[in-house]
């Protein structure tokens, strides 16, 4: 099987801060891969570097067999799309859902916009009643559905997910996670998902990489994590923390 995303020795430097220190990674086509870590681990930076939103200092990123240069072309964005963490910040405050979904179609010159918007809204379970609403008329979960619809409307093969549910209530989170799994199954998508929550990553992903301070700590399968077969102390700490508070006294 070919690699959907292959990253080799990736370094990202903001000003003088090394956010990523030579990270390598391979995501197989059709796989769901998780990146886990705490704030400052570089997991979101890695995702943004792939999307072309972070300054790559050295190393290489290959997507579907094509090595990426410093600039992304339009064809890249038809292959790779992203869903952001904060549904309140990722939708333009002055645009209706309709306008938000139309924009990618207009940029890429699709003619059958009407049909595609309708289908995209149906796919994320919103229906046409939401089409002409502004984002402030939507709840957090609905906003995230719109963001997913926008990411899917160009029919990419790879979806980058940056903590897509961490700003949502638990019950809404379940709905959005189910939706993501469903579209992945239906469209045979490759997921690269960032989360600080081990439970979410093991639920969504087959393999995962634990990161800390801009470096990879270890690579695991979800099954290994479930069985607590981890080798690094840091991962063990994360696992323990995810089980809730334990009174020591």
């Amino acid at each position: 099987m070919t690699a959907a995303i292959a990253i080799d020795g990736l370094e990202v430097i903001f000003d003088r801060f090394r956010a990523l220190k030579g990270v390598s990674l391979e995501v197989r086509s059709g796989e769901s891969f998780g990146l886990v870590g705490e704030s400052g681990s570089g997991k979101s930076t890695l995702l943004r570097a792939i999307a072309g939103l972070a300054p790559v200092a050295s190393g290489s990123i290959t997507v579907n067999g094509k090595k990426l240069g410093p600039r992304r072309d339009k064809a890249f964005y038809r292959e790779v799309q992203m869903v952001f963490q904060d549904p309140y910040g990722s939708l333009h405050p002055r645009q209706t859902v309709d306008r938000l979904l139309q924009e990618p179609l207009a940029i890429h010159g699709f003619a059958d916009g009407e049909k595609r918007i309708q289908r995209a809204l149906d796919e994320v379970g919103l229906g046409s009643g939401f089409r002409f609403r502004y984002s402030h008329q939507l709840s957090g979960g609905q906003r995230q559905r719109v963001a997913i619809a926008r990411a899917l409307i160009l029919e990419p093969s790879i979806l980058l997910l940056d903590e897509p549910t961490s700003a949502l209530d638990a019950s809404v989170q379940a709905e959005v996670l189910n939706l993501l799994e469903e579209v992945r199954r239906r469209r045979k998508l490759t997921f690269l998902m960032v989360s600080h929550d081990l439970a979410i990553v093991t639920h969504m992903c087959e393999r995962l990489m634990v990161m800390q301070g801009g470096e990879a700590v270890e690579n695991l399968t979800a099954a290994q994590l479930v069985a607590h077969r981890v080798t690094e102390d840091y991962t063990r700490n994360l696992l323990r923390a995810s089980e809730g508070f334990v009174r020591t006294a």
């Binding site: 890249f76 992203m82 990722s90 924009e103």
Partner: peptide, 16 residues
């Protein structure tokens, strides 16, 4: 902001 990043990720030109 993320919503401008999102438009960049659609492949929109700076002018647009």
């Amino acid at each position: 902001s993320d919503y401008i990043k999102a438009v960049q990720l659609m492949g929109a030109s700076p002018f647009r």
